[in-house]
């Protein structure tokens, strides 16, 4: 960390202290506009969303102040019926919610693993010296640059059951004998989402891993070669441990992105129960049904899950995300 080391020669200590104090004071002033802005657009809305999850707010009562405080009822509510029967309701006993939770987890685990695997492969290729490497690197940036809405529509068209080129190709080589309704059928909807997501985000993973690969000193490989160590062993003993920090950071960023996924699923498989995620379900509750209470309860739970995940990951992986004390 670069810190200030003004030359102390011939200067009274007092003046030095003042200089440091002056810098700290200036730092606070410089940070203020950003902090105010973040409080306004992030902290306050987050606080309000969490508050809504404890009320029965709907699209009508959101602004007229008629929504009531209901405590944890949106999460879990015990209802005693007149016949003495006890009924539980709320997000935590909602089968749709748990379906969305498992979909999100399944999607995140599979997509991030596949992206790490393919990202590593692509990074290893790009780390070699060969003709046209620059072109390949440019080409893999294209999926990353394409807006998600566009990739969802583009792939939706390619995976179309009647006119899609994917079915056409697969039937052409005899892999399938009749067209598959990729995005509509509940068996293949998740697969379709995974294909598009892996296609779109592997480049990001590859570039981060490549940066890690390029930091490995060449002489480590040369030493291994002189000792006659098999390349596969070199990969597992030298390459993999050396890129672990870069890989960990890439994986955590991607995982956080995967856990909150919304647009791809909302656009590619709009009505499918097989792919609906926590974000999509919460959005439906809020926007389509106007149930701000329950929808906010869902988004709050997602927020809690993601926060726990980050804390756990940092504790287990000892990842230093800030890079402040290197």
């Amino acid at each position: 960390m670069p810190t200030l080391h003004p030359s102390t020669k011939g200067k009274p200590l007092r003046r030095q202290l003042n200089l440091q104090q002056q810098r700290v004071r200036a730092a606070y002033v410089f940070l203020l506009p950003m902090l105010i802005m973040l409080l306004l657009v992030a902290a306050w809305p987050l606080f309000r969303s969490i508050s809504f999850s404890f009320t029965d707010a709907t699209a009508e009562t959101l602004f007229n102040g008629q929504s009531q405080w209901v405590g944890f009822d949106n999460y879990l509510e015990r209802r005693l019926r007149s016949n003495g029967e006890v009924r539980w309701r709320g997000v935590l006993v909602d089968a749709d919610w748990w379906n969305a939770v498992w979909n999100t987890i399944r999607f995140s685990v599979v997509s991030v693993s596949l992206e790490a695997f393919f990202g590593l492969l692509v990074a290893l290729v790009l780390n070699m010296e060969f003709k046209g490497r620059g072109l390949v690197r440019a080409a893999i940036l294209i999926p990353w640059a394409i807006p998600t809405v566009v990739s969802a529509r583009m792939w939706g068209w390619m995976l179309n059951d009647q006119f899609g080129v994917i079915n056409y190709m697969m039937m052409g080589v005899g892999l399938i004998d009749k067209p598959i309704a990729w995005t509509a059928s509940s068996d293949t909807a998740m697969l379709a989402v995974l294909i598009v997501d892996v296609w779109k985000t592997t480049p990001f993973m590859a570039l981060l891993i490549l940066a890690g690969l390029q930091m490995i000193p060449r002489d480590m490989y040369e030493a291994a070669k002189l000792d006659g160590i098999h390349p596969v062993k070199v990969f597992f003993r030298v390459t993999l441990p050396m890129i672990k920090p870069a890989l960990m950071v890439a994986v955590i960023f991607r995982a956080l992105d995967a856990l909150r996924i919304f647009d791809l699923i909302y656009l590619l498989t709009p009505q499918s129960d097989a792919t609906v995620t926590m974000s999509v379900l919460s959005y439906r509750e809020i926007q389509q049904f106007g149930d701000y209470g329950e929808g906010s309860a869902m988004s709050t739970l997602l927020f809690v899950i993601i926060t726990l995940f980050v804390l756990l990951y940092i504790k287990l992986g000892r990842v230093n995300l800030t890079g402040a004390t290197r």
Partner: peptide
Amino acid sequence: MFPQIAVLSGLYEL
């Protein structure tokens, strides 16, 4: 990195 959906209803109000 936090999920956009987590601020959606609060932001809508704001």
